[in-house]
Design a protein around this nucleic acid. Structure first.
Lengths: 246, 246
DNA sequence: CGCTACTTTGAAAAGCTTCAACCAGTGTGG
DNA sequence: CCACACTGGTTGAAGCTTTTCAAAGTAGCG
């Protein structure tokens, strides 16, 4: 890559600057970060760490997405987390990763050696505070996901995932309440199954059923149109009122 | 209560001092904590906060246990967390509780007004750091629980819960590898079901099945004896090697 | 004694998975 | 260029697991 394509490697141009663990750092602190950070890139499908392996760095996702996956002895697996840009990977104070981390798309990580990061945390209280906030957000998200996994039917699970993706699209693209709401499903049917604790056949059938019942339309295999988000939220078993700005 | 029963109200005698958010505080910091803290007590079954309600304090569990519960519009519920002594309740920076918190047994909380706590966090970096550690532990636990909810069979779910309780008993009571391993199940069948995403009938049947298959023995309704923990771990679908000191 | 809360068990029904076949699109080597 | 394999997706039928509905047993307590 020519240097003119590397603008994002300066902290001040970094696309995740305002949401990552470093979002509250001051200019002089960014200088320190700049001197310690390094980038790693992975291709879609590559594994970042295996479950139980040592991981000597922590990182922010800069671009792309990664999945956290847990496995039982007999091979059954479940995705337990999805890392989006600005999300944090790794854990200060522990070197063994309890889950397998895989690049879901092409992935760029902004990395720090774990020891260096821990020392930085001591020096810059901003970092620890932001990291606490992010962890608590993830904890809330994990618990909401537990409710989906433990109590929702297959149809409700699929609807919940589609609602979540639709909400994200809405938030990112400032889509008005009357615009046509569409988005790309960034996962294979198998990954959806892995995410929701279903089999891929059940995922297929339920997506087909939602289409048949006119709750969604599908272009190609992966592009979803939601004609009536409120109806889809109801199908997900959620309270329409609990969502912002419907 | 006479003052002679209140020894635990001094931080230095507090039973959770070495594990709670304050575990790394210095003597002068404890003085500050002592001046701001106050206690609340709840009876078994009482609600501490309703989902969506404002909560103007944060707290440590001193004695007893509490449950975090999420609910769908039609009334289905799932326990998404179990707070044991030393665990933290509430969230700095947010006042609305996303879940219902209920006292599972008689419960004593060591409380701080949220504003006061947030100011304390600024002043004492120890607190934030310990809280981050605790949150990350909880996040790992939540993700492990997601695997149980999403991929395990009813029998495996029950076995997993019993293994977890057996492990806790072992850790707390220094039980040797050859001692008889028994513990009290601190939940009704209905609560177990709520915890594992099952119905209470399924819980009953699976407990009966485990008993029939000699993987557990039962005294009364709630006292469990585990003759062979390794066998029970296998029944839970877990890797025996992943547990410490079997 | 007769509540009430908790537990157990059975039978039928629903829901999801498993096994199997098949389709569509894409890339590859003869 | 076509045949072939490969990946991802769809659909059907049978079977198994869990839920639902129903009935009845047990223990603690006023």
């Amino acid at each position: 890559m020519g240097s003119f394509t590397n603008d994002w490697k300066k902290c001040k141009n970094c696309p995740i600057r305002h949401r990552a663990f470093c979002s509250r750092c001051e200019p002089d602190e960014f200088a320190k970060l700049e001197s310690l950070k390094y980038y790693r890139t992975y291709n879609a499908g590559q594994t970042v760490v295996w479950a139980g392996d040592k991981m000597n760095f922590v990182a922010s996702v800069v671009t792309g997405t990664a999945t956290l996956r847990e496995t039982l002895i007999d091979g059954r697996t479940l995705m337990v987390g999805l890392l989006l840009p600005a999300d944090f990977l790794g854990r200060p104070g522990r070197s063994i990763s309890p889950y397998e981390v895989t690049a879901n798309t092409d992935l760029v990580l902004c990395c720090f050696r774990r020891n260096a990061f821990e020392k930085m945390m001591e020096e810059m209280p901003h970092i620890g505070r932001r990291l606490l906030e992010m962890s608590l957000d993830e904890l809330d998200a994990a618990r909401e996901w537990m409710l989906i996994l433990g109590r929702k039917s297959a149809r409700e699970k699929i609807a919940s995932l589609l609602v979540a993706l639709a909400q994200r699209k809405k938030a990112l693209h400032q889509i008005g309440p009357n615009d046509r709401l569409n988005f790309h499903l960034p996962l294979t049917r198998e990954s959806v199954a892995d995410y929701l604790g279903l089999t891929l056949e059940t995922v297929c059938r339920q997506i087909s059923a939602l289409k048949r019942d006119r709750l969604i339309e599908i272009e190609g295999k992966r592009d979803i149109i939601v004609p009536d988000l409120t109806a889809l939220i109801r199908e997900a078993g959620d309270d329409v009122g609990s969502y912002p700005s419907i």
